[in-house]
């Protein structure tokens, strides 16, 4: 399927990417383009290949075929740490804090090693403060990250990713398991980030929230792209409705 070019220059272009595990094709020739400064939503039933697509773009898996271009450079199959340095940051569905470090030090790692690393440890520390404030973790600064609750773990994932100063942010189900208030907070955060000019690709199982924040949505089903368009177009798309029928979701 051809990637639809939508409003503005794409910062990320995914071209016919494919990944198979044994006989199972988890991502089947998916293409998409994400324009700078927009929120690109990715939805699909369980096992539709959303996380695999994330892993393919962020360097945690190598695609069998296809190309990924970011900011004018070919990043297909490049190691994850290089991709981070190229300006892509991600969060994990199952949060992965550095368990023995403090919340603050978790963020400092991002400032030390990310896209625009700070020159010294001291600089990194002072520059990390803003991400504590931004995500509302300032009163947890000396807490050991391994002991955090679900909500704070999610916040830390985002804060850490932002601390690498990415050009684009990949958020993998950051709202799963949160209550309504917390989802509202998360959506405010996303909008603020967008207003600050951040490009984002967001995977979410909670359709309502995703459709509310996204500028553009792609729907995956069993590894294939079945629809793409504005949130309005997506909710009316018959194939999407069909794919989600009988699917247990929180929408």
């Amino acid at each position: 399927m051809e990637a639809k070019v939508i409003f503005g220059m794409p910062i990320l272009e995914v071209d016919c990417v494919r990944k198979s595990f044994g006989g199972l094709t988890a991502v089947n020739d998916v293409s998409c383009a994400v324009p700078e400064g927009k929120i690109f939503g990715l939805i699909g039933p369980n096992g539709s290949g959303k996380t695999t697509l994330f892993n393919l773009i962020t360097g945690f898996m190598k695609p069998n075929s296809g190309k990924v271009r970011f900011d004018g450079e070919d990043i297909t199959g490049v190691q994850a740490q290089r991709i981070c340095k190229a300006g892509i940051a991600r969060t994990f569905q199952l949060s992965k804090p550095f368990g023995t470090m403090t919340v603050f030090d978790n963020i400092v790692v991002g400032r030390l090693y990310g896209n625009e690393p700070a020159r010294s440890l001291k600089r990194a520390r002072s520059e990390s403060e803003e991400y504590m404030l931004l995500t509302g973790l300032e009163n947890k600064r000396r807490v050991t990250a391994g002991t955090l609750g679900l909500v704070d773990r999610r916040k830390l994932e985002v804060a850490r990713a932002l601390a690498t100063r990415p050009k684009m942010l990949f958020l993998d189900e950051m709202m799963a398991g949160l209550n309504h208030r917390e989802i509202e907070d998360a959506m405010v955060l996303l909008r603020n980030l967008k207003n600050a000019g951040m490009t984002m690709m967001v995977v979410e199982h909670i359709m309502k929230a995703l459709l509310a924040v996204s500028d553009h949505v792609m729907v995956l089903c069993t590894g294939r792209k079945i629809a793409e368009g504005t949130p309005k177009e997506i909710v009316c798309n018959e194939q999407v409705i069909e794919a989600y029928l009988g699917e247990d979701h929180d929408a």
């Binding site: 962020t58 360097g59 945690f60 190691q79 994850a80 740490q81 981070c84 340095k85 940051a89 991600r90 994990f92 992965k96 804090p97 550095f98 368990g99 023995t100 470090m101 790692v109 991002g110 090693y113 990310g114 896209n115 690393p117 391994g146 850490r160 990713a161 601390a163 690498t164």
Partner: peptide, 12 residues
């Protein structure tokens, strides 16, 4: 603590 997370933050 977590090799994958470290990689995702640019640590080799």
């Amino acid at each position: 603590d977590d090799e994958d997370a470290a990689k995702s933050m640019g640590v080799s």
